[in-house]
Computed example of a mutant assay.
Amino acid sequence: MTDLVAGQLTELAPSVHRLIAPNPGVMTGPGTNSYLFGRADIAVLDPGPNDPVHVQALLEAAQKIGGKITRIIVTHTHPDHSPAAAALQAQTGAELIGSVIAQDGFQDDSFRPDTTPQHDALIAVEGGPLRAIYSPGHVGNHFCYLHEPTGLLFTGDHVMQGSTVVIIPPAGDMKDYIDSLRRMLAYPLKFIAPGHGGLIPEPAKELEYLVAHRLKREAKVVEKLAGFDSATLEELVVPVYDDVDPSLHPVAQLSLWAHLIKLKKDGRVGESDGRWSLLI
């Protein structure tokens, strides 16, 4: 973890570098990872928050590598991943690539892409292409990107090191999230390069663990809900997330909501006036 330092340019593979934004926190870990591809024509993936210090650090990193930023790609438009794109484009004229969705209170309205990626399409970057993999779940406009020459899968907030991802309905969807994790198992992966934290080895093992973890939590939701005639999110979050620091329960409650919505779609729970009950 000693290399996870904000502002420190780290080479992960030939023509692939990481630069961490200075926005550490409970939800962001050491900070948002921005990735740079290429040496002359440089593509930036997830430029991060609109922090002038980080924007300048990205410009200086490109200069240090020996090139110019010509493309800016985002995994999704949450405020710790995409807002720096506009400032970076203003200074470089780079093409913006990413997907947008309706504002749900968590989206970056400043992000206006020139190009919207398509699932399984290849995006040309110096040193080899990035394959766009549509990965809804954390949010509906999320894409992961597979760097085909290295087998590095850049997962944004779909997979993070050291913590599970928060799913925030309605833009976030638990069923989509689990399906997206399973879809990635079909690709030739060597490492996961998350939006927060360091490289994760044995990607298939990690993806399978995350699916199992979510399904185990889902089973716990059903088990604890069976102890109530009906329950609100506030009542249910305590027994379902009794293994989580209570200070994080307001955040965990969002993922609990996502689990319940999935179970409702599956016909296993019902909801009336904010109270949830087990049907079968």
Rank of each mutant, 00 (worst) to 15 (best):
T32Y: 02
V53W: 14
P246A: 10
I20P: 00
R275I: 14
M1A: 09
T232M: 07
P136K: 04
R183C: 10
V244M: 08
L236Y: 00
R71E: 14
L185I: 10
K264P: 00
P47K: 01
N141C: 11
R275S: 12
H158V: 06
L181E: 01
F143E: 01
G7L: 11
T150F: 09
S180Q: 01
L88I: 15
E223Y: 02
V74F: 00
D229P: 05
G127P: 02
N50Q: 12
E234P: 01
I123V: 11
S163V: 12
V74G: 06
Q253D: 02
A21D: 04
V221D: 00
G31R: 08
H78S: 15
V237F: 00
D120M: 05
Q103D: 15
P194A: 08
S163K: 15
M1F: 03
F143W: 08
I101V: 09
H147D: 06
H142W: 10
V166H: 06
E60Q: 10
P49F: 12
E235W: 00
T92H: 03
I178W: 02
T70A: 11
I20A: 05
N50P: 02
A40S: 12
L185A: 09
P52N: 07
M27L: 13
A204S: 15
T2P: 03
E218G: 05
F154G: 00
I72M: 12
E271R: 13
T115K: 14
G151S: 07
V26I: 13
E271G: 04
P250D: 10
D266Y: 06
A193G: 09
D173W: 03
V159Y: 03
P149R: 13
L152H: 09
D245G: 12
Q253G: 04
S272R: 14
L152Y: 09
L12E: 15
Q8H: 15
T10H: 09
S255N: 04
G267V: 07
P239D: 04
L130R: 02
S110P: 02
H249T: 01
L210R: 15
I261S: 02
G137W: 00
I97R: 03
R183M: 05
V166L: 08
D108S: 04
F228Y: 06
A43E: 01
E234M: 04
D243K: 02
T150N: 11
D243N: 12
L9V: 04
E11F: 00
L207T: 03
A132Y: 01
S34T: 10
D80L: 13
L122A: 11
P136G: 00
L215M: 11
R214E: 11
D3K: 05
L260E: 07
D266V: 06
R183V: 01
V238P: 00
P14M: 13
I42N: 08
K262V: 01
Q63N: 10
L12T: 13
L233C: 10
D108A: 14
K265M: 07
P246S: 08
G31D: 03
K205V: 11
P47E: 06
G48D: 14
T116I: 10
G137Q: 05
D80V: 15
V5Q: 14
I133Q: 06
E126D: 11
F111Y: 10
T70D: 14
E60M: 07
S163D: 08
D245N: 15
